[in-house]
Amino acid sequence: MTDTEYKKLYDKDPGSAQTALFDEYLSYVYAIVYNKLRSCGSREDIEECVGDVFSAVFISYDRNGCFDGDMKGFIGIIASRTAIQMYRRLVRRGDTVYIEEETSEIADTEQVEHITERSEMRNTLLRLIKSLGEPDSDIIIQKYYYNMNSNEIAAKHSMSPTSVRMRCSRALKKLKELLTREGYDMKEGNI
């Protein structure tokens, strides 16, 4: 849908214009949000963020502006920024302990053990990543924690994207060996 088409539809019926925009760009927005939040958010968090994106689009869209083109870029930028803000909130919230949420978990000793094991695994993993040295540790953290692609990482380290991918692959093999030595059973997809 172009800006002109949206303006015409909005002038006739604002509700149907928003519905048409939502229908056309829902899967696009969902894909952007899912890629940003899949590592830390629940399905509800992702759906909430998608709703926030469309709210921001409807609120910030200037119908009197001189933009005349496909709205995909405009919506994509808002989706990306909103998802990044949600990611930061979720990551911050993950470190905060709320008494209301923890009371049921404290009573369940299996849950406490599971939380403790995961915390220990995270600390071990971070220690082993740091032991890989520079720039391998930076590459692993930027790729898997900050979801940066090879081109973005390459620009930060003055390397080619191919070199970044190769170093990442080698670093993951080293990391897997180090984790195995630490006593962790490394099955596919569990790193």
Rank of each mutant, 00 (worst) to 15 (best):
His114Lys: 15
Leu9Cys: 09
Ile106Trp: 06
Glu120Val: 14
Lys12Gln: 14
His114Phe: 13
Glu44Ser: 14
Arg170Phe: 00
Gly15Leu: 13
Gly41Glu: 01
Asp70Gly: 00
Asp52Ala: 11
Phe58Asp: 03
Pro135Arg: 02
Lys7Gly: 08
Glu24Ile: 02
Ser39Pro: 06
Val112Ala: 11
Tyr87Arg: 12
Leu21Ile: 08
Ser163Gln: 14
Leu128Thr: 00
Lys130Asp: 15
Lys143Leu: 02
Leu37Trp: 03
Arg118Asn: 13
Thr124Phe: 05
Leu132Lys: 05
Phe58Pro: 04
Ile99Pro: 00
Asn64Val: 07
Ile141Thr: 13
Asp138Phe: 09
Gly73Ser: 09
Thr103His: 05
Leu132Gln: 02
Phe54Gly: 02
Glu24Arg: 04
Val91Arg: 10
Tyr34Ala: 07
Ile32Ser: 01
Gly133Tyr: 06
Thr19Lys: 15
Lys72Pro: 03
Ala155Val: 05
Val33Trp: 00
Glu152Ile: 04
Thr180Trp: 00
Glu177Ser: 12
Ser131Asp: 14
Tyr144Asn: 06
Tyr146Gly: 00
Lys130Phe: 04
Asn151Ile: 12
Ser55Ala: 15
Gln18Thr: 00
Gly41Phe: 00
Asp185Thr: 15
Tyr98Gln: 09
Thr109Tyr: 12
Asp3Pro: 01
Ser131Tyr: 02
Gly76Pro: 07
Thr103Trp: 08
Ser39Tyr: 11
Ser60Asn: 15
Ala17Pro: 08
Tyr61Phe: 15
Ala17Lys: 01
Asp52Tyr: 03
Ser16Ile: 14
Met86Thr: 12
Gly133Gln: 09
Ser27Arg: 11
Glu120Tyr: 08
Ala17Ser: 14
Phe22Thr: 05
Glu182Gly: 05
Gly69Pro: 06
Asn151Cys: 05
Ser39Gly: 13
Glu177His: 08
Glu113Arg: 11
Gly15Tyr: 06
Met186Ser: 01
Lys173Asp: 13
Glu5Met: 07
Gly65Asn: 13
Asp68Glu: 15
Ile32Tyr: 01
His157Ala: 08
Ser158Tyr: 13
Asn123Cys: 07
Lys130Gly: 03
Ile141His: 02
Leu37Ile: 06
Ile46Leu: 07
Tyr6Ala: 04
Ile140Ser: 02
Glu177Met: 10
Glu44Gln: 13
Asp95Trp: 09
Glu120Thr: 14
Val91Met: 12
Cys40Met: 01
Lys7Asp: 11
Ile141Asn: 02
Ile77Ala: 08
Arg181Asp: 15
Phe22His: 11
Lys187Phe: 03
Arg81Gln: 10
Ser119Ala: 14
Gln111Asp: 11
Val112Cys: 13
Lys143Ser: 12
Ile115Gly: 01
Thr2Ser: 14
Lys8Pro: 01
Ala171Tyr: 02
Ser158Gly: 03
